[in-house]
Simulated assay, not measured.
Amino acid sequence: MNIPNTITFSRLLGIPFILYLLQNPTAQSRWICVAIFLICALTDWLDGYLARKLNQITDLGKFLDPLVDKLLVLAPLLSLIELKQIPAWGVFVILARELTVAGWRVNQTNISGANIWGKLKTVSQIIAISLLIAPLPQNWQTSTLIAFWVSVALTIISGAIYLFPSKSESKIL
């Protein structure tokens, strides 16, 4: 395993801490969760940067990176359902898209990296989850829910674009 893939795999180590700390969501534990979540999210950028810079892009990395991203996103979202901060059906939409795209990728002979819509989806999810985890004042509740629904919308859009690329995008690939 190369350095970028090792960094990708290490991102999994933050998930148990996030889940544990969200079981007793004090203000302090929530800020710690935000910090852990953002550090893990930054490693997503770091592993991609290093893979390109060191010319270590691999099919394993193209498969492992989005899989770990999905786990990092879905773990706190499931805890936030349990805390009654977000509706389960919104998370189900995200989960359904992720499983559909993952299943689609398994059947592809050539695994492609994320397009701009997939990257926007990931960034919007990171922002939404960070806001939802953070112990923000009550007047932020509407903003955090808007961020969540924007991420759900981008999840749907990016999934549709991935599964049904336009003819002009097909020519580029």
Rank of each mutant, 00 (worst) to 15 (best):
F148P: 07
S130A: 13
L13Y: 04
A147T: 01
L22D: 09
F148V: 03
L64D: 04
D65G: 00
L50E: 09
L46V: 15
S112K: 14
W31L: 04
G61A: 05
N115R: 09
L77D: 13
S130T: 13
L22H: 06
T43L: 06
I129D: 14
V68C: 11
Q23H: 15
P165H: 02
V91T: 13
V93D: 00
I86A: 06
W45V: 08
I126G: 13
K167E: 13
I129K: 10
W89T: 13
K121I: 01
C40H: 07
T8A: 01
I116M: 06
S130E: 02
I7S: 02
V150T: 14
A41P: 15
S166E: 01
Q138C: 01
K119N: 00
F92G: 05
V91C: 02
F9A: 04
K121G: 10
L21P: 12
T6A: 11
G113L: 00
Q28G: 05
S10R: 05
G90C: 04
N2M: 02
V68Q: 10
L78I: 14
I39T: 07
I94D: 08
F63V: 04
L173P: 03
L77Y: 08
S124P: 03
I161H: 14
L42N: 15
G14M: 14
L173D: 13
W149T: 08
D47G: 04
L163Y: 01
Q125D: 05
R52Y: 07
W104Y: 15
K119F: 00
L154F: 02
A88C: 04
L13D: 02
L19A: 11
F17Y: 11
T8K: 07
I116F: 10
N107F: 12
V73W: 06
P16L: 06
I111H: 01
Y49V: 02
E169S: 10
L136H: 11
L99C: 13
L99S: 06
S10I: 13
L95K: 07
A41S: 14
I18C: 03
P165M: 07
F9P: 12
N115H: 08
D59P: 08
K167A: 05
T142I: 12
K70R: 08
I156R: 10
